[in-house]
Design a protein around this nucleic acid. Structure first.
Lengths: 232, 232
DNA sequence: CGCGGTGTTTGCGTTTGCGCAACACTCTCC
DNA sequence: GGAGAGTGTTGCGCAAACGCAAACACCGCG
């Protein structure tokens, strides 16, 4: 917040594509930065959506909680992505809760500013449309998986998705670059903690994955893909 | 196509909110009308998205088919809604198949025209964003249901959603105003045809619903809501 | 170093919903 | 009016996944 932000920070983000340099400066001028420790909540489900954000660094988990207390992981927010744009889609409140899973850094703008910014840069609305559209595709993919695939395949898919989003190559295999618990995997796939644990244990003995406390390494992505695609 | 369209036709649709009269005329000038008989396909999954549409009258079903042939009903398109806006979200092809379930009437525009129209009317992009955002909410709701709720509750929810979208009051109860088969309900809820059939049969004896071939009447929405919310 | 909390494993009984299969009904088309 | 396809119904057996419960590893903290 005290440090001056350079436009290079946001220039390459999908959200700010095709914006003029001057516009980038205008956008940045209204932004505040927010540092987050693991476990910190950016906003809670149901709160008035008074701001929207871009994640510069780190990783967030967005969840929804049902009236009876069950949680579902809606998605993970990766660096460079916007989140909390409820107001842009004419929603007064946040539909989910955003929590940092690692040390993170975000930019924030007051929600009211969205209209100001889009009025100045119509490209913002167009980019937001593409972003939300992509998320809708992802959601439909997930609906299709939940509707038609067995738990085993869904968990395999979830792991592969994590690899794509946050995989970091190590000599041991591909490490998911942030803490993921069995519970998380369960909430991502609509399974129970127990079933996920059993699956992971089985895969561990087969050498497909290696995992510890909130830590997952995928050793054989190809074999996992076979399982995900149904011929495991 | 031959008949001249009046702007009153689209003025009140969410998509064309806040457009000037002149703009409405410009939009209509580029539109062609499309008459659809039940079973007609507007576009197929995977086809190049060369057009986008607004449904003026009737009802469509949008489905996705998995590589192994299983179908999922993504959503139903109701009068006044846009569909097939793949290009607006920067997708080259249609992610699903749109099929008329009753006699329908749609307006269509070439996809290339989207950029022309949004350039002229930025409000269109903003409205589209709100629309897609709403759909994303709906998708997340469905993901939550699929992840946490038992089949019975999901089917109850699906019926109530149909009532909201297409319910028509009759002296017999609330009729779903277009053909809905058990198979459809199954594909909407991630259950099998058989399970849905059994559920409907059970509800029929309890007087909650009355149904026949592709026809559903909800007689006791309140009781159905109790089931949907978990205390049935 | 011991302790509490959190995350993970594992066993066992249970149930839900699927898979298969046969049958009944209804609308359509010839 | 009859054949046939598309829908809907129902019974039965089974397996996958859940729910409960208890024990176990691991981490951070004082």
């Amino acid at each position: 917040m005290t440090t001056r932000l350079d436009r290079a920070v946001i220039r390459d983000l999908a959200m700010f594509r095709d914006l003029a340099e001057a516009d980038l400066d205008a956008v940045l001028a209204a932004a505040t930065t927010k540092r987050l420790a693991p476990g910190d909540i950016v906003f809670n489900q149901g709160e008035i959506a008074d701001a929207f954000f871009v994640l510069l660094h780190g990783r967030l988990k967005v969840t929804q909680t049902t009236p009876d207390g069950q949680q579902v992981v809606v998605r993970h927010v990766n660096p460079g992505e916007v989140f909390g744009i409820a107001r842009a889609v004419r929603r007064p409140d946040f539909p989910g809760t955003a929590e940092a899973v690692v040390e993170s850094l975000a930019l924030g703008w007051p929600s009211d500013h969205w209209d100001v910014l889009t009025a100045r840069c119509p490209a913002l609305a167009v980019n937001a449309l593409a972003t939300v559209g992509q998320r809708l595709q992802d959601a439909h993919t997930r609906i299709r998986e939940l509707s038609t695939e067995a738990v085993e395949r869904r968990v395999a898919h979830a792991l592969l998705r994590l690899v794509r989003q946050a995989g970091r190559k190590t000599d041991d295999g591909i490490l998911i670059d942030f803490p993921v618990s069995r519970q998380d995997l369960a909430e991502m796939t609509g399974a129970t903690l127990h079933t996920v644990s059993r699956l992971m244990a089985a895969w561990e003995t087969k050498g497909l994955v290696a995992s510890g406390r909130k830590r997952v390494v995928v050793r054989d992505p190809h074999a996992l893909l076979m399982i995900a695609e149904g011929e495991g």
